[in-house]
């Protein structure tokens, strides 16, 4: 005797699955279409461009009108662009791929480490039981985040001006009030000798300056995320731990940290991606100088487009940036186990 029930039931679940999928994709369609046309299609086009020697004269090339194909199609050059990027064989000054990559990674890790540490510490202090003026501080502390990044970056650039900038003026003020003799004519962005030798020799003074500016810019985001997570921890847990004789240090490691971790990990992922591509701070504050030593990948890519008009090479460069970021995120993901946070809910 055969059992007819299981096959039909399987069929209906299969049908329902298709039905649900169809409905889901209808919901996704508007966003999906925008992304398809504005992000994915250009990406496809970009991959094609990366294998060609696309220059200014090829801008007239229009893939939709075959009349332009004959005269304006860029020559296909296979992996030439990629090879020249990685072997540092590019028509721009002070370009070394290895150093650029190393700097970009060091830049990201050092920034995010400061953002998270400061953000969590300040959030914890403000979350203390009897802190006065909590709302006042919280309101003002988000200013760096609320300010348009372009303006923040240009302001910091101005503050590092060697003759009239606020930082040197502040040092002068210190000298006046405290009688110290700090130097007041430091060329923050141009100084060639690295402040810390040895292994960190490749980091010029300008790096530390941009680091300070970007810490100023980035910690409020981490602090807000940490505040949200801290507020979700029931105070009974701390009280119970206190009764059991746990020291503040133990309470931090055993209660606070594990409980804010699920919120911090995705924020760290996001922050790393943002910092890795932090265009404004580098482009406006150090402008990649001195001698291109604080250049990051995106600023270099932009200069290829704007200053050199090497569109094909810039396209190849963008693909390289993307691949590096992908690897960086996967490693980051592996280290921090972020997937468990945004995986199936």
């Amino acid at each position: 005797m055969t059992a007819p029930a299981p096959p039909t039931r399987a069929k209906t679940t299969q049908q329902r699955r298709w039905q649900e999928s169809l409905r889901a994709w209808v919901y996704i369609a508007p966003a999906g279409l925008i992304m398809l046309f504005i992000t994915l299609l250009p990406q496809g086009y970009q991959i094609w461009m990366a294998f060609t020697d696309f220059r200014v004269q090829n801008l007239r090339f229009n893939i939709l009108s075959p009349a332009t194909w004959q005269d304006y199609a860029p020559p296909w050059i296979w992996f030439d662009n990629f090879v020249r990027i990685i072997t540092s064989d590019m028509p721009i000054e002070n370009y070394y791929f290895g150093r650029l990559l190393l700097f970009n990674v060091v830049w990201t890790i050092s920034n995010v480490a400061f953002h998270v540490t400061l953000g969590v510490i300040i959030a914890m202090v403000l979350n203390g039981k009897y802190v006065l003026g909590r709302r006042f501080y919280r309101a003002l502390y988000v200013i760096p985040w609320a300010m348009p990044p372009l303006i923040a970056a240009v302001t910091w650039h101005n503050m590092y001006d060697y003759r009239f900038g606020a930082v040197n003026l502040l040092l002068a003020q210190f000298n006046q009030v405290l009688g110290t003799s700090l130097p007041t004519d430091i060329r923050w962005m141009l100084e060639g000798t690295p402040p810390i030798g040895g292994l960190l020799q490749f980091l010029p003074l300008a790096y530390y300056c941009t680091l300070v500016a970007n810490i100023w810019l980035g910690w409020p985001f981490m602090s807000v995320v940490a505040t949200g997570a801290l507020q979700a921890i029931p105070s009974e847990m701390y009280e119970a731990a206190e009764v059991d004789g746990a020291s503040p240090w133990q309470r931090f490691w055993k209660i606070t940290l594990p409980l804010i971790r699920p919120a911090m990990v995705p924020a760290i992922m996001l922050g790393s991606i943002w910092t890795f591509n932090q265009f404004n701070v580098i482009y406006f504050i150090s402008q990649g100088g001195p001698l291109g030593r604080t250049e990051i990948l995106v600023t270099q890519a932009y200069k290829l487009v704007l200053n050199h008009r090497l569109y094909g090479m810039a396209a190849a460069f963008s693909i390289v940036v993307f691949l590096i970021l992908l690897v960086f995120t996967l490693v980051n993901n592996r280290v921090t186990q972020a997937t468990e946070a945004y995986d199936v809910a």
Partner: peptide
């Protein structure tokens, strides 16, 4: 998530030619 990683600079050139068309 992968699209989140694409720097804006990266899509500029192809987007330029696309929106131009």
């Amino acid at each position: 998530i992968i699209l989140l990683m694409l720097p804006a600079v990266a899509t500029m050139v192809p987007l330029f030619t696309l929106l131009n068309a």
